[in-house]
């Protein structure tokens, strides 16, 4: 969906200012100093591309949602453009402003950015309104639809989307890639995770559960694809640990592993964290985790 935003003269109306959510903090200044005109002085035509609707993931700390925005100059002269982005609380956006130079239309250039939608765990499911303003004028509304939290029945994966942590995370991957619900090694780059310290062990990767829960089984998926078989690239020596009221307890010691999937089943305990400590991998470089799942039994 594309909205054309035409600006032929400087706009200094109070209505536009009120809609410019990001400058509310400056309202006191506006009251003191405003009304002198001047404005941004863009006499340009900038096209905004953004979705009208974003289906967001449930409000879990390690599940993220994002949408793309694009700005294109459709005039013969280069311009600067300001895109302001705001969303209804309690949601927030990774970017509240996108200001950029835009070459003339014949360059065929679109300045794009990916905007992450963030929200606290207690966000109620439903629709939230995001507002995009271009050079101070309302330009587009986006409906962000927040999905409900997954039902946590007796068979639920308690690690899904919860806050992951790691001794280090390589810049090519995401910390949350190991608890995003994707066990497919073919999507390793986008959906897996590994440490940043090549050849240095141990490495730790774990997840903070939402609350203390009975834990009796852990499923650990390491990299295992046709191109990157586990016997060559996967985890080799690992301890699987759960954190109880008494401290860390090792529930499984795996040595010499060459499989893509490790299951640890043990007497159920009340735990609030689960982690994998890797002492070696089959290439002796990185500790590659595709997914860490935690179940009651």
């Amino acid at each position: 969906m594309t909205t054309m935003h035409r600006r032929t003269k400087v706009l200094a109306g109070a209505g536009a200012a009120a809609l410019l959510v990001t400058s509310l903090a400056g309202a006191a200044f506006a009251g003191e100093w405003g009304g002198r005109g001047g404005g941004p002085g863009h006499h340009s035509v900038v096209a905004l591309s953004a979705p009208g609707r974003v289906a967001a993931a449930p409000p879990l700390p390690c599940l993220s949602s994002s949408f793309g925005v694009g700005l294109t100059n459709t005039s013969d002269e280069p311009v600067f453009a300001d895109l302001d982005l705001a969303v209804e609380a309690p949601l927030s956006l990774s970017r509240r402003v996108l200001s950029t130079y835009l070459p003339a239309a014949d360059a065929g250039y679109t300045a794009g950015a990916e905007v992450e939608v963030r929200m606290p765990r207690d966000t109620a499911p439903g629709s939230y309104l995001a507002t995009l303003s271009l050079d101070g004028e309302p330009a587009q509304r986006i409906t962000v639809e927040v999905a409900p939290l997954p039902e946590r029945g007796p068979d639920a994966n308690l690690a899904l989307g919860e806050q992951a942590y790691a001794s280090s995370t390589h810049s090519n991957v995401r910390l949350c890639g190991g608890v995003d619900g994707n066990t497919d090694s073919a999507q390793w780059g986008a959906s897996g995770t590994h440490d940043a310290t090549s050849g240095v062990f141990p490495d730790t990767y774990g997840v903070n559960l939402a609350e203390s829960a009975t834990v009796g089984r852990v499923e650990l998926y390491t990299l295992d694809s046709a191109r990157y078989p586990a016997a060559r690239m996967g985890l080799r020596d690992v301890d699987i640990q759960v954190h109880t009221a008494e401290g860390w307890r090792t529930v499984e010691e795996v040595r010499g592993n060459e499989a893509g999937h490790i299951t640890a089943a043990f007497a159920p305990v009340l735990a609030d964290r689960v982690q994998v400590v890797t002492y070696d991998s089959n290439d002796h470089k990185y500790s590659r985790i595709v997914e860490l799942e935690v179940y009651a039994s």
């Binding site: 200094a12 200012a17 410019l20 990001t22 400058s23 903090a25 400056g26 309202a27 200044f29 506006a30 100093w33 405003g34 009304g35 002198r36 005109g37 001047g38 404005g39 941004p40 300001d82 302001d84 509240r96 402003v97 101070g136």
Partner: peptide
């Protein structure tokens, strides 16, 4: 820039003498 780490330094979209 009354709020230097906020968008536009915390300033409104208007010119100031």
């Amino acid at each position: 820039a009354p709020e230097p780490l906020e968008p536009y330094g915390g300033m409104p979209r208007s010119a100031v003498q």
